[in-house]
């Protein structure tokens, strides 16, 4: 946040921007109000989750189990962690989450541990959690609310919905306003420049894997004023070294769950091709993959990081 506050737009346009911001906030609140009315509530305690399934949830869930790291992050961001009684193995943000009981990894859930924790609500994610485990949890009369965030907007909706089922609507609204403001700041910064440098975002080291159009990362790259060189129908396309060189990326970003040493090796390999603009201009960066592949509020942190890497000149 400080990133934007200190370096924000030149003084002459400040009032104009403030006006735009105000109208945006007003618009957003009216949208929010509309959205709150639209949240599908069939009867008291009955909800429709993001897979259009009717689920009956307790009025005030006290033993919640999060079946994905992103859901854990959302629950912490809503400050509802006192309800959280179990998380998946890789739930490592915030750091306190690692102290909660583990229920396996999100693709390989440990049914026995979940049942033993006696939850009154499980929040699952469609992309990753095996359907068989969800079905079996429901056969134990454990309510499962499934979320299915597809893009930044649906992540924001997911935050509102989880806030709603955990009786934290106020928190969710505050969080949403904050996230929305930050997204708007990035958007208004980017609108000052029509230049869209080509970005190659490498999420896999060997083979080289990048991101297609239908991913969070593509959306973030475009929002941060870059052109995703790997856009296309395939969500996670593979590339040969030759293809990457032919794309001539101006900015090269490697996300890695791996250590710094691996990044240095990857960087050294690309450095052998100084004809690549990103190499010539020293614009190869390493970023934390957790900021980009988890549909959680931290996607906005990722967005702010990206604009810093893609358009540093706009922040001066």
């Amino acid at each position: 946040m400080s990133l934007f506050e200190s370096n924000f737009s030149p003084p002459q346009s400040r009032t104009k921007v403030r006006l735009i911001q105000k109208s945006v906030i007003i618009f957003w609140f009216s949208f929010l109000a509309l959205f709150m009315c639209l949240i599908p509530r069939v009867a008291a305690g009955t909800f429709v989750d993001q897979l259009e399934r009717q689920v009956t949830l307790p009025d005030d869930p006290q033993r919640v189990i999060s079946l994905a790291p992103s859901i854990t992050e959302i629950i912490y961001a809503l400050e509802q962690e006192n309800r959280l009684k179990g998380v998946t193995r890789h739930s490592d943000f915030p750091i306190q989450a690692t102290k909660l009981p583990k229920i396996g990894s999100y693709v390989r859930l440990d049914l026995e541990r979940i049942v033993a924790l006696n939850p009154d609500l499980c929040i699952a994610i469609k992309d990753g959690n095996p359907k068989e485990v969800i079905d079996r949890l429901e056969s134990f009369k454990i309510p499962v609310y499934v979320v299915n965030p597809r893009n930044l907007n649906t992540v924001l909706e997911t935050i509102i919905e989880i806030g709603n089922i955990l009786n934290a609507d106020d928190k969710a609204e505050t969080l949403l306003t904050n996230l929305h403001d930050r997204i708007q700041r990035v958007k208004s910064l980017i609108s000052q420049d029509t230049y869209r440098p080509g970005v190659f975002f490498q999420i896999g080291i060997s083979p080289i894997v990048s991101v297609g159009t239908d991913t969070f990362l593509h959306e973030l790259i475009v929002l941060a004023g870059g052109e995703n060189l790997a856009d296309g129908k395939t969500p996670y396309p593979r590339f040969s070294r030759e293809q990457v060189l032919a794309l001539a990326p101006e900015i090269f970003i490697v996300t890695s769950m791996a250590r710094q040493a691996v990044f240095e090796r990857v960087k050294a390999e690309w450095r052998r091709w100084p004809s690549m603009p990103a190499v010539r201009n020293e614009r190869i960066f390493l970023v934390d993959s957790n900021l980009f592949d988890r549909p959680s509020p931290r996607l906005v942190d990722g967005l702010e990081l990206l604009i810093k890497l893609i358009h540093p000149e706009l922040l001066k």
């Binding site: 693709v107 992309d127 095996p130 485990v133 996670y236």
Partner: peptide, 21 residues
Amino acid sequence: TQDSRLHNIIFWLMGDLSTAD
């Protein structure tokens, strides 16, 4: 296979008895 079914297929390939009801 590109999507998340991949993980499930790989675990299942290695022999998985966990989803028995």
